[in-house]
């Protein structure tokens, strides 16, 4: 039977046109920081066998994000899609994901990224694990199967922490953990033509509407506007050595090196 892995992935807003946060076909894409997480799942499955389910939440176009995960080699995709889920903050998102993961049980391993390329909160993985009462290692950069569990490494404050993890468990994976595999053409063909993404609505999750979406959110984004960054070009003068010294001084004074 092998190992049952659930990978939580996100559709990010690649193009926030005019400050509008709308996940459409044109604006969404698979969070690039989730690709290494999928890669970890695929490598574990290669060693231990089993099934990988990719789980995501969002409006209908986000199903394509699950197709992309399936093109990498994931076995099936589940999209939590319901108007009541819209406007969720990280807590409401975690409520929905935790309910879906319970419904997907039995499972051995739940994987998350550590961040999203759009909102970048880093909260969903740990919150979901808490809601599931699931042991969690955060910021893992190395995951190796061993006996009936995993050896997981993370770095913290200049130290290397090494954990022996038993199933069931949760991990958040650093985006630098690996170089995710390239997606082959056959994988894309199979993912889009032969495999279905399952859509689950609020009723499927057995959750009340006040725990999800905007209603279930503890926080609220008041406004979103584009930040203007001003760039200026400056030429340093003097000999090459003087210019390099001046550059080093500037960079260290500004804390960049």
């Amino acid at each position: 039977m092998g190992i049952q892995i659930i990978v939580c992935i996100k559709s990010i807003i690649a193009n926030g046109l005019n400050g509008q946060v709308v996940r459409s076909s044109d604006s969404r894409e698979l969070n690039p920081y989730d690709r290494p997480v999928l890669e970890v799942a695929l490598r574990i499955r290669e060693e231990l066998g089993g099934t990988i389910t990719a789980l995501s939440m969002g409006p209908e176009p986000c199903a394509f994000t699950l197709n992309e995960a399936m093109a990498m080699g994931v076995d099936r995709g589940v999209l939590l899609c319901d108007p009541a889920l819209a406007g969720a903050d990280t807590l409401a998102t975690s409520n929905a994901l935790a309910a879906a993961i319970k419904k997907l049980a039995p499972f051995d391993l739940v994987l998350f990224g550590t961040r999203a390329a759009d909102s970048d909160t880093g909260q969903v993985g740990p919150q979901t694990a808490v809601l599931l009462d699931l042991p969690l290692v955060t910021g893992a950069h190395s995951v190796e199967p061993k006996d009936d569990g995993l050896i997981v490494e993370r770095s913290a404050d200049g130290f290397l922490e090494c954990f022996e993890v038993c199933f069931p468990a949760g991990l958040t994976i650093l985006s630098s953990a690996n170089q995710p595999r390239d997606v082959g053409l056959l994988g894309i063909q199979l993912a889009f033509e032969e495999r279905d993404v399952k859509n689950w609505n609020l009723a499927d999750l057995d959750l009340s509407a006040d725990r999800v979406g905007e209603a279930g959110s503890a926080t609220n984004v008041l406004a979103l506007s584009r930040m203007e960054s001003v760039r200026k070009c400056e030429f340093l003068s003097g000999s090459a050595v003087e210019q390099v010294d001046a550059l080093i001084n500037r960079l260290s004074a500004s804390g960049m090196i």
Binding site: E29, N67, E68, A71, D182, V183, L185, I188, F192, E193
Partner: peptide
Amino acid sequence: DTFLSEKKRTIRRS
């Protein structure tokens, strides 16, 4: 890209 299906856009991206 707007004219292309999501599958074809995924092919282009990959």
